[in-house]
Structure formats: structure tokens, C-alpha cells
Design a protein around this nucleic acid. Structure first.
Lengths: 182, 182
DNA sequence: AGGCTCATGTAACCGGTTACATGATTAT
DNA sequence: ATAATCATGTAACCGGTTACATGAGCCT
């Protein structure tokens, strides 16, 4: 139901179609919540069935018709309740296949595991590069809105930067140690 | 199947029972891969069916009997193949309900969202405290083993430390900004 | 005619969680 | 007795992914 709350969060800003939501997720939450379009459409049906959102068909002449969803009072309440409740320890935990691989990387020769880490480093650097545009786009998108909303978007963007930078530094240290060994 | 590879990784060190594996996951991979015991037993059946592991009943007099699993050649090959293949971009991505909440926290008054972050900070600090014993336990557990294996365990532990510390610093900065606003 | 964006789904599957259930043996 | 550790599962469910499918309208 986590995705459902994400959708409610966006619809709480403004009514949107499924397609709009796909784009919204892609361009903002993607770093810590990647959503498939199929999943979003599925979740929209669930939310409507639960009375949290309400869809209305919009007939368009220049484009295919679409269904625009609006959050209901019940939906807004559910969303705010979810926001208010704490996450507990689960906020810290995350799953990473990559780190599991590193954990067992002693089963590969150092040259090969160094390659794994080098690949990770370059992937992180590429990601960091792409993230450079984020603060600007938050500012432009947020300018016509409540300023208060945007500081939280900046918080999450800031988290992303710190995380990626820490990953890069960590990878460098690991690679260095492996190279010293050879 | 990720859990399956984790199990193969452990069994590649030494044969173990399901119960042993539950403990092994808890005391080492837990930070980035929490495994339910039910899931482990389920996965063991699958792995045996695929011919990757082989179970043998051990009759014990002082404790309940158990089934000890040994990795097969096919299992070892599958494990090493998995290790060797790169992770790609997926290595970076992670899902976080907590960050999604922060993203939408503008829908709460600053006092309430600051509380969310404060809770996160204290949870992180408690976690960091508990992690202090990890390097020592790696050293003692690894001392009778191949030294080469243990450096990778240290790598993952190091990652954990950096990550948690970065989280704490980030939370502090966010809270400060929120307090400045009031 | 062919490719792009807009727009919406379905079906099969899988990885994992939750909750529950059982029972042996050891230690206090 | 009873709590703790050792030991192993089952059933229902859920959140999410993969792969596939369709079609309108726009631009070139």
C-alpha cells in the first residue's frame, strides 16, 4: 500500500491522470521509489474501490481521452494518518543485492571484485551527474507553489546527494585496499 | 532468488542447517538483508529441488535432530556465476517509505515533521551504538579463517557505518532548518 | 508510412512478509 | 513447572515486477 500513499500524496497537490502520475514518480521520487506504470494503474483501481480517490473521464480532441483522479476526503484523511505515524526501525533498513555480493566477494580474485566495485563507482558517478539538475528543477517547479512544500523536496534531494557521494568515497577506499593487496 | 544466493554463499563456507542459516543472516547480513526464518526454510527446499544443495539428516541425542545442507557443484557454479555478473544501475536504487514520507512532509506542520526526523535520528543513533561490536566480531570470527574473506565483511560493515553516520548528519541538518523556520 | 508521445491496461509470476503452529531438549 | 534455545515448518497474503498488448492522435 506504500505506492498508494505516494499516489495520494501527489493527488493531494492536484488531480492527475495515471499517465501524469507515472511521470511524476519518474521525475521526483524515482531515486528512492521506482514505480512501474502497470503498478500505478493497478493501485489507482484499488484506491478508487476504497473510496480514496475519484476518477472522471476527460474527453480530449487533440489527444486520447483520459481519466483524471481527484483525492476524496477519506483519501486525504488516510494519507495524513499515514504521514503522521512513525516508521520505527524500518526507516533504516534497506535491502541491497549489491552489498550481499560484496559480502561474498571473497570468493572471487581481488582483480574481479575490484572490477565490481569500480563498476559501482562509475555508476554512482554517472548518477550523481544526472542529479545535478535536481535542485534547479525543484526551485522552478516549486516557485509557483507554497515554498514550505519545497524544502522537503530539497531534504530528499540532499539525502540523495549525500548517499551517492558517500557511496563513491566508500567504493574508492575499498578499491584502494584491494589494489594495495596485489 | 537473491536470498537463495545468500544461502549458497554461506553454504559455500561450510555446511549448515536452516537454523544455523537464520542465525548467520541475523548476525551478519541483517543490516542490508533481513531474512525471515520461514523464507529461509522455503528457499532451502527450492535450492534442493534445483540440485544446488543437498540435505542430510543428522540425528542428535542432546538436541532435536536437524538437516544439514551441503552445497553441490551445480550450486557452487550458480553462486559463482551470480557473483561474477554485474549489478548495473540497480545497485544504487533502493526503496524507502521513510524518504517518501519526508518528500510529502510539507503536509504536516513543521513541529510534526521535525518529530519524524528526530525519531529517525535517535533510531539511527541507537543502531550505530549496536553496530560498534561488529568490527570486533568480524575479527574474532575471521581469525581462524582465510584473512582474505574478512576484508569484504569489513567493507560491508564500513558501508553500514558510513551510511548511518550520513543519515544522522542529514537528519540534524534538516531538523536545524525546520527549527530556524519556527 | 513510420515513429513519437499520450494513455491505459492485463496476466503470470515472484520475492518476501505475517501470523501461526509444533515439538524436542536443556537449563533454572 | 517453565522459560529458553534448538529446530522446522505451513498458509494466506501482499507488494511489486516482467512481459506483453492496444490504440489514439501528432509530427515528419
Amino acid at each position: 500500500m506504500s505506492l498508494g500513499f505516494g499516489i495520494l500524496g501527489f493527488l493531494n497537490y492536484t488531480p492527475m491522470s495515471g499517465y501524469d502520475l507515472v511521470k511524476a514518480f519518474e521525475s521526483s521520487l524515482a531515486f528512492f521509489w521506482h514505480a512501474q506504470n502497470s503498478h500505478i494503474y493497478l493501485e489507482l483501481k484499488k484506491l478508487e474501490k476504497n473510496g480514496f480517490i475519484c476518477g472522471e473521464t476527460v474527453i480530449q480532441s487533440e489527444r486520447p481521452n483520459k481519466t483524471v483522479f481527484t483525492i476524496t476526503d477519506a483519501g486525504r484523511k488516510a494519507f495524513l494518518d499515514w504521514l503522521a505515524e512513525g516508521e520505527g526501525e524500518s526507516a533504516i533498513q534497506f535491502k541491497s543485492v549489491f552489498l550481499m555480493k560484496v559480502f561474498f566477494a571473497g570468493n572471487m580474485p581481488p582483480a574481479q571484485s575490484a572490477e565490481l566495485l569500480r563498476q559501482f563507482q562509475t555508476d554512482c558517478e554517472a548518477y550523481l551527474e544526472r542529479m545535478q539538475s535536481v535542485p534547479a528543477s525543484i526551485e522552478t517547479y516549486g516557485s509557483d507553489k507554497d515554498d514550505y512544500q519545497t524544502i522537503y523536496w530539497q531534504f530528499t534531494a540532499d539525502f540523495g546527494f549525500c548517499f551517492i557521494k558517500a557511496c563513491i568515497e566508500w567504493a574508492k577506499r575499498c578499491i584502494e585496499k584491494l589494489e594495495d593487496m596485489e
